[in-house]
Each structure stands twice: as C-alpha cells, then as structure tokens.
C-alpha cells in the first residue's frame, strides 16, 4: 500500500515533469543542432590521420577539444527501466547520446573557427564516465562525450 502511495506521490509527477519539460528541452536542442550544422556545411571535417587539402605555409595546426555532458530526464530513465525488462533498443537514451555527440562536434568546429582554421581532421569521439559505477542503482543516466581533433587551414573548395 505504502509502495503504491509513494509511487503516486513521487514517480507520477516526475514522469509528467520529464514528459513536458524534458521533451521540449530535447526538441529545442535538436532544432538548435540542425541549425548550427547547416551553418557548418562549408567546414571540412574528416577523421583521416592525414591533412586532406592542406594549404601550404599558413597557420600551424593545433589540437581542439570539446566536452559535453547531457543529463537524462525522469521520463527517459523510467522508460529505460521498462525496456530493461523486455530488452531491445532504448530509444530514449539513444537520442540522448546522439545529442551529446552532435553537440561535441559543433563545439569543436566553433573552437577551430575562433582560432582562424577552416578544417579539422583526425576527429575522435569518445565517451567518458563520471557517474561512478554504471550498474549501481543510484547512478544517473547521462551522456558524457569527449571529442578531439586537429584543426588546420585547408585550401578553399572549388
């Protein structure tokens, strides 16, 4: 009885809260990413170890790094819990990871642009863990991404 009571007092408002606020946060973030990525079309991004199309005798290349940590909302965490019972793709957490990865790349490009570069190569996107042991009950689901690349000046595209 007490369990059902606490479920209604805590879980239901939090799921509703996640549904309303969390959904709009995600929707806005995706819209923002679409817009920024469209603006970055002219920027050459590769994960090659060489410097494709490098211009000679200009600025020295430099490393660029970005980090993104995005938290889950209560609805996503709750849905993930249910998915754990039946198995299969956890769509709610998949979109969370995608947002973190796309955001990290957008920030890398921003940084490179600020330093006067127009291309990055050897892009590496890694995940990190700052929530401690992932399996523990009180660890919060979050997407932690660290991205690294080398910025350089490329010849303009023809």
């Amino acid at each position: 009885m007490e369990l059902i009571f606490s479920l209604f007092v805590f879980a239901v408002p939090l799921v509703v809260c996640g549904m309303i606020i969390g959904r709009s946060v995600e929707k806005n973030h995706f819209a923002e990413l679409d817009q920024k990525e469209a603006a970055n079309r002219d920027f050459l991004v590769t994960n090659l170890k060489t410097f494709p199309m490098a211009a000679a005798g200009v600025q020295d290349p430099a490393i660029v790094m970005s980090e993104v940590v995005i938290g889950s909302d209560y609805l996503k965490s709750w849905l993930a819990g249910w998915r754990g019972i039946f198995g299969g793709e956890i769509k709610s957490l998949q979109t969370l990871q995608v947002r973190a990865k796309r955001e990290a790349i957008v920030r890398l490009i921003d940084q490179a642009r600020q330093q006067g570069f127009n291309a990055i190569c050897n892009l590496r996107v890694n995940s990190a863990n700052i929530s401690g042991v992932a399996k523990s009950k009180n660890s919060l689901p979050m997407a932690v991404v660290i991205a690294t690349a080398t910025a350089y000046v490329a010849r303009p595209k023809h």
Binding site: G18, E67, S72, K76
Partner: peptide
C-alpha cells in the same frame, strides 16, 4: 537529471 538538459557543472569538470 529530472528534467533533462546539459549538466554544465560536469562539462566544466571535464
């Protein structure tokens, strides 16, 4: 983590 969004404190930490 209840409402979602970037955890700026942890981004800064990294």
């Amino acid at each position: 983590n209840l409402v979602g969004g970037e955890l700026k404190g942890y981004t800064e930490l990294l």
